[in-house]
């Protein structure tokens, strides 16, 4: 059996080493990566993917630890992908999210993988979507994806999750922050964590007010919950709300979501393939260097050069 077939079989048999190795192949963008995705693709789509985002230090990892605990009590298997930032200066990364989740590290029903974002923007790594697929194909009922500590515009999580939870903590900003665009627009559920802290009620009501200002008619109304992740308070309510959202998705929104997702992914995949093949071609013929030279010598600007390339492609 070849390496790909072996990994694919291993993932389907829920072999933890195979799952880990398959993820590495995907993450490193090895030549085998697309083959693994292709062979597992039909086995995906069963897991409920929960995205967890929010500012650094708001308690995302601790909250996830408590969610795993509750999900395991109800017999569900859980996959976790925790993304932390790569240094743009050295390429290194310190992945510390799982420190809070180590209690579950030896539980056979839980698989936790830390990923560096490898300088991708948007709060996730390039490979996150495909790593979700690996965990999905390995039979996990729920997959939790934790973004890097997100400020305002890290909204990639929407594209990979069924339910997005935005975790906030008191004292990080006033109602002006709450009205800004970005992550405050993407939550299906909002959580004000560290609810025992001063100003927790103020933060809660600011988010609530922000949601009430929504003019767009949506069938799902996001709500704001209060939790104390450290002690587990509010976790049961959060899980109940997640379940409500899942039920809501099943009634039709899920299909709409999947269609949108399929379209985005197809566009991305086509773009990537076409761009790669055009550039490879240009490099092969030596044209690439000449085109670059045109820009360097200011003979032409990049857009004009791109137009030129396109014209040649269309007219042969």
């Amino acid at each position: 059996m070849g390496q790909v077939a072996q990994l694919v079989q291993g993932v389907l048999r829920r072999n933890r080493r195979s799952i880990a190795k398959a993820i590495t192949v995907i993450e490193n963008n090895e030549p085998e990566a697309p083959k693994i995705v292709a062979q597992l693709f039909q086995k995906t789509g069963k897991a409920h993917v929960i995205g967890i985002t929010g500012p650094t230090g708001s308690g995302k990892s601790t909250l996830i630890e408590k969610l795993i605990r509750e999900l395991r009590k109800s017999g569900k298997t859980v996959g976790v992908i925790a993304v932390d930032p790569t240094s743009p200066f050295t390429g290194g990364a310190f992945l510390g999210d799982r420190v809070r989740m180590q209690e579950h590290s030896t539980d056979e029903g839980v698989f936790i993988r830390s990923m560096a974002n490898r300088n991708a923007t948007g709060g996730l790594s390039r490979a996150t979507k495909d790593v979700i697929r690996i965990l999905d194909a390995s039979g996990k009922d729920v997959i939790i994806v934790e973004t890097v500590g997100a400020g305002q515009s890290e909204v990639e999580i929407v594209k990979v999750s069924n339910t997005v939870i935005v975790v906030l903590a008191p004292g990080l900003g006033d109602d002006i922050q709450a009205i800004k665009a970005g992550i405050m627009e993407i939550g299906d559920i909002f959580v004000v964590n560290k609810a025992d802290r001063q100003n927790a009620n103020k933060t809660w009501s600011e988010v609530q007010a922000m949601l009430e200002m929504n003019t767009e008619e949506k069938s799902w109304k996001p709500s704001v919950l209060k939790t104390k992740a450290l002690t587990g308070e509010g976790i049961a309510e959060l899980l109940a709300r997640i379940e409500e959202h899942r039920e809501y998705l099943k009634k039709g929104a899920f299909e709409v979501h999947r269609k949108g997702e399929a379209e985005t992914e197809l566009v991305e995949a086509i773009k990537q393939k076409i761009v790669e093949s055009i550039i490879a071609d240009l490099r092969h013929t030596g044209e690439w260097e000449k085109l670059k030279q045109k820009i360097l010598t200011k003979e032409a600007d990049p857009y004009s050069v791109a137009d030129e390339v396109l014209k040649k492609l269309v007219h042969g």
Partner: peptide, 24 residues
């Protein structure tokens, strides 16, 4: 330039090896 995964304090041998396996 390496990617470091940290376990935190007070880990059992089983936790450490299982973590190493999952994190490959």
């Amino acid at each position: 330039g390496m990617e470091i995964i940290y376990t935190g304090l007070r880990q059992t041998p089983e936790q450490i090896v299982e973590t190493a396996l999952q994190e490959d």
